[in-house]
């Protein structure tokens, strides 16, 4: 009886040995990857559906690689938080952030800087959109017609889909959104917000205006079912931010080189990935207002 079990016992031992080898192999792996020539890895917050982003950002990677003369790689992210965390952990060195995620990222990575923003970004706005079944009319300023409806933000860390609209709502109603609306949700991204309002799952939603306009232009949204009912006051939003320590890896002046590469990006196909008309220079202090509001809403300590 016992003898017949012996072979399995030795198999167990073999398995343990293989597992041990696998584990050590795995931990020794990073050393090898580091030995290769340095690659600049960048990412972007997943503010739209991701199949769309992967294709377009790979073209950006090719462009940057040509301009900078180093290997450049794009990695997709599943959430806003993942983008910030990867930047923090030095898994990506350069990222296309929203206003809020940019502020978060630059706080957790001392020495990192915002270098470029879209031409549209200093005066960015959010649209509040509503399902036509609600019969809501466009309003110049916020009023009580939207009280008691169901409402969705975008991602929890979105500037145009959460932070700024929540700030404006709280400033106007002096109440939490949960009190103004009968139900408040977070769709995850702007494309999803548009879908949820179009389907009627939520009466109202707030979105990034560039994403909404692009969806209308591409026929992705049925304007008979969805309409814009409010446009927010302007605020600064998206930006490219880079870690300060890239100059240690890629040499002095590298940050300036990256900035210039974006400033002279003129190809409309590349720019449509964002979508922006062109890029202009930016600095950390351009986003001070976003940081202040995030603190007021207690999203930052």
């Amino acid at each position: 009886m016992i003898r017949s079990k012996r072979p399995s016992a030795s198999r167990w031992a073999a398995k343990i040995a293989v597992a041990a080898i696998a584990t050590t192999a795995f931990f020794s792996l990073p050393a090898e990857t580091q030995a290769q020539q340095p690659t600049l890895t960048f990412s972007a917050i997943p503010n739209q559906d991701e199949t769309h982003l992967l294709d377009r950002f790979n073209k950006i990677a090719a462009y940057l690689s040509k301009e900078l003369g180093v290997q450049v790689k794009y990695v997709p992210m599943k959430s806003y938080a993942a983008a910030v965390t990867s930047f923090r952990n030095n898994h990506v060195q350069l990222a296309w952030f929203g206003g809020m995620t940019g502020v978060q990222a630059r706080i957790v990575v001392p020495g990192s800087v915002a270098i470029v923003q879209g031409e549209e970004d200093p005066k960015f706005v959010s649209y509040m959109i509503a399902n036509s079944a609600t019969r809501l009319k466009e309003m110049k300023t916020l009023d009580n017609s939207i009280r008691g409806k169901t409402f969705t933000f975008g991602s929890k860390a979105s500037t145009s889909g959460r932070l700024m609209p929540e700030y404006f709502l709280r400033q106007h109603y002096k109440e939490y959104p949960e009190k103004v609306f009968s139900r408040v949700g977070f769709s995850g991204d702007h494309t999803k917000t548009i879908e949820l309002v179009e389907s009627g799952a939520y009466d109202i939603g707030v979105v990034d205006y560039t994403v909404y306009n692009a969806a209308v232009k591409n026929g992705k949204v049925d304007t008979k079912k969805v309409s814009i009912i409010w446009t927010s006051p302007p605020y600064p939003d998206y930006n490219w931010s880079i870690r300060g320590d890239v100059e240690k890896t890629f040499g002095p002046g590298f940050i300036k080189k990256v900035q210039d590469a974006f400033l002279k990006m003129k190809d409309p196909e590349l720019l449509s990935a964002f979508p922006r008309k062109s890029f202009i220079a930016a600095s950390n202090k351009d986003f001070q207002i976003v940081e202040d509001n995030a603190r007021k809403l207690k999203l930052l300590d």
Partner: peptide
């Protein structure tokens, strides 16, 4: 939990 992780807390 997801919310506070988004806020990097």
């Amino acid at each position: 939990v997801d919310g506070v992780i988004t806020e990097i807390r």
